[in-house]
Amino acid sequence: MAEKKMGLHTIKLKNPPSILSTATIVGPKEGEGPLKDYFDIVLEDDLFGEKSWEKAESKMLREAVRLAMNKINLSPDQVDYFFAGDLLNQIISSSFAARELGIPFFGLYGACSTLTEAMSLAAMMVDGGFADITIAATSSHFSSAERQFRFPLEHGNQRPPTSQWTVTGAGAVVLGREGKGPYVTYITTGRVVDFGIKDANNMGAAMAPAAADTILRHLKDTGFTAADYDLIMTGDLAKIGREIAADIIKQNGYDITTKFTDAGIEIFDLTTQDVHSGGSGCGCSASVFGGYIYKQLINGNLNRIMIISTGALLSPTSTQQGESIPGIAHAITIERSLEK
């Protein structure tokens, strides 16, 4: 078996890369939510001085990456690889950001799971000795996602209670071979799981089995239990999806309920912010992890956590053609220090 492989689909990094810095930029609505004090930049105008939502989203991603580099005085030349993805067709936010940044670029699409997909690959790249410094970044924008996946913004329609609100946000994470932590230590890569949910307004339910599958495989592969983690955070099953995933995991003999939260629940106040089931989008787990969670790791409130970004791999075309919604979830373990 491969040296770093563990169990079925988990790897244990032998030279765990350190997270050197993170940066987050969010929109005005996210800036009114419970995590408002943890974001680096809260935009007053969600067009960010640009002429279109797409341009604004790409700028958010680009500026988040620049900010994360500036925090540790890094120049783009010192970064070996840039892994990024977003929700738009042909991932234009990411590739247009990469056009300005000039860092060798791997474009990824994992829908809302892209953050941990990018972080997994960025971490493996460093661990494998292929890179000294890598960056993982993702973005999403409510308005650009709405027009691509749903209706024009000014169209007067009703959302069902299961629907989720796409987060306007971008987050960047810089990983390096040498650093003081927190470290990426384990990676469990997701399988595409589809239990036949067809309702594009209920993506939490479509993704919950994938999240449960990845978490269960991770726990089986590593031998960990909920007690080994301070926090297990999916991003973004939202309220309904989280409950379903917790139930499936419980049925399989693991109880993680007390440690289990979701980025889509954390980022908004579900009772006052009119987001129905909670937040979604690549920018959701990126801004919650890069803003809130990272700071909790740095100041010692959290020691070992698992982040599982979850993606619904649908397109408007697949929905119209009657396809069900496949889900995917990638898990990574992050530890504050390596002596444990």
Partner: peptide, 27 residues
């Protein structure tokens, strides 16, 4: 769109909703 959020079919079915469905994509 804020009226539609609460009214649903109440503001989609009348002819004002028809206008909304054409003007909103145009914008």
């Amino acid at each position: 769109d804020n009226i539609g959020k609460y009214a649903g079919a109440g503001s989609i079915v009348p002819i004002t909703g028809f206008a909304n469905s054409i003007v909103s994509p145009a914008m």
